[in-house]
Design a binder for these strands. Structure first.
Lengths: 123, 123
DNA sequence: TTATCATTTCGTCAGTTGGCGAAATATAGA
DNA sequence: TCTATATTTCGCCAACTGACGAAATGATAA
């Protein structure tokens, strides 16, 4: 039941569901998630780590960037059931439409440019 | 996403998972759940109501007793996926074994006797 | 090496949650 | 009607959570 609880708790937060839904089509690096969610880097990092602990998300490091994607559907059956639930629940809320639009913009950008945009503004 | 979130939040608590797992084979009345969980009636009532709000549990009233059971698998697909996840995650934890034993004892009892046992002890 | 920078870790804080007991509610039985 | 009682509602409190910023980490580039 502990594994189950770790998974259900990981799913029980809107930010984390938004992260999972954003990764449906492609992997995303942390800075892309930061841009999508408009949250502090430390917050995004923490939430992604909760999804990783639950086995829902896998990450690979490439230089300074960390790319995240949904865990394989062929791995842990618990994870597959969890994603089935999330995908079933993906509906037409305003928030999801907004995230979809924002994600398209982010994907059309060079990640380099995105990161530069996120650097502390020298005033 | 709101419906999904209501479901995932309902699943994200050990007490509520225990309730769902206990109802796998048969409906249970609140006082049976109180005995199983060893929690205050107000607490059990609250947790069941969260499961009902999420659509995971249905209840029927029979006199003073309220009987609860898992929602139909043929209803909301979200609910079905949620229960698939829970059942997949039902494992062999010590807690589950203990709950199984306790549940068997409870089911072998007359609910009337169970309720009498729960009444405030007149010292 | 040194500087830069994407990400993570840590400490803090406001808001939420899950537990309890007391009081309220609704129903059965006297 | 009045009493007993199974359940719910309400208010409270300790523990947990999700957000942030500052500092630490690890890797690239100068």
């Amino acid at each position: 039941m502990n594994d189950l609880l770790r998974v259900t708790r990981a799913l029980a937060d809107e930010t984390r569901l938004r992260i999972l839904l954003a990764m449906r089509q492609q992997e995303l690096c942390i800075c892309q998630l930061i841009e999508l969610l408009q949250l502090a880097p430390s917050t995004v990092s923490k939430q992604v780590s909760i999804l990783r602990e639950a086995g829902l998300v896998q990450a690979r490091k490439d230089g300074r960037w960390v790319y995240c994607r949904l865990a394989s559907r062929r791995g842990n059956p618990l994870v597959r059931r969890a994603m089935d639930l999330v995908l079933e629940g993906a509906g037409e809320s305003l928030r999801q439409a907004q995230d979809g639009d924002a994600l398209n913009k982010i994907l059309s950008m060079d990640p380099e440019v995105l990161c530069r945009k996120q650097r502390p503004q020298s005033v």
